[in-house]
Design a binder for these strands. Structure first.
Lengths: 183, 183
DNA sequence: GTCTATATAGGGATAGAC
DNA sequence: GTCTATCCCTATATAGAC
């Protein structure tokens, strides 16, 4: 098994259990690897695994969710494309956000800079599209922040309510909502 | 120390670390109690502690955040009151949401019904106020859900960005936003 | 790369003295 | 109610054989 495949399998564990709940047993089970193999790929152990997972997810995010925001399409089209990718990325709302999960407890102290960067980039890329759409500076920033808030919040609620509806609604309304006229 | 005081001290640990990260060491440290004392109050151990914490927080929620929604004030006034209490409850955005933290990993399987009930009640109470304000059935529900989404999402973002602003903005805009005319 | 074995620490939990 | 002592298990991590 390649390191990349291992990382992909690790993601699900950190997403579901957070940093402290992601035990080596669970990580081994998810990858099908024994401890020795895990330590072969990640000599510094669990912390390195979490770091690799965060880095990998940030990269995925960049190339699948943020990339559509930088095309030459119309702003509305770009946002729709992003939402479709977000929908896939979070399994139609059924998968937790890794950044939320890993920013609890110890994980926060260890990875806050990476988490902050990921959120900041996401906000910034949305903001750029809104500026292109002719939305005024401050309003564009506020709306970009709200977009991320809505996605994160709806994922929390989906988990709490055991009901995908909040996420589905957020995703389907988001593009129009972000671009609607101020008046 | 009374059991209630113990519970209050336990809350912070589950909030910050989630269920799996809340070790007996941390729980003991936060309360100033040794293991024996913790087991004296909570014979079934950690699971009972988490359950007691959830129950206590739900009760607090009920009496401090939801109660203002059932007064005889104007709807706008009730929502403003709720937001003020929410602001206190989450330490101006600096404290995680217990429901979010505890619904990760094992905690989800153990406490999902309690978590679901807490979110449902919150949504329902906001919905009732919006109905009184003359907002139409479906729209009232959607807005109530969005209110909770915005609060939860902004708390996630505050933690990720190390910046209270998203929460502060959500709280200050929420009452007007919930009541604004559909046209 | 993966296995077995092992080291050390900390986890949750219990018993009995006071 | 709190303390000390102790139980067993799991956690993370390492070493060396293959």
């Amino acid at each position: 098994m390649s390191k990349e495949k291992a990382i992909i399998n690790l993601i699900a564990v950190f997403r579901k259990y957070g940093y402290e709940g992601a035990t080596l047993s669970r990580l081994g089970e998810a990858t099908g690897l024994g401890r020795s193999s895990l330590y072969h790929y990640f000599p510094k152990g669990k912390e390195e695994m979490a770091g690799a997972v965060l880095e990998y997810v940030s990269h995925c995010f960049e190339t699948t969710i943020l990339a559509p925001l930088r095309t030459n399409e119309e702003p509305l089209q770009r946002l729709k494309e992003m939402c479709e990718k977000v929908n896939q990325f979070y399994g139609q709302g059924q998968e937790n956000c890794l950044l939320n999960a890993i920013s609890l407890g110890e994980g926060n102290a260890l990875f806050q800079p990476l988490i902050q960067q990921a959120f900041s980039m996401w906000i910034e890329e949305i903001r750029q599209v809104l500026l292109i759409a002719g939305i005024e500076e401050e309003e564009a920033y506020n709306r970009a922040v709200e977009a991320v808030i809505l996605i994160e919040g709806s994922l929390v609620l989906v988990r709490g309510l055991k009901n995908k509806e909040p996420f589905e609604k957020v995703i389907s309304n988001l593009p129009d909502k972000l671009l609607k006229s101020t008046f």
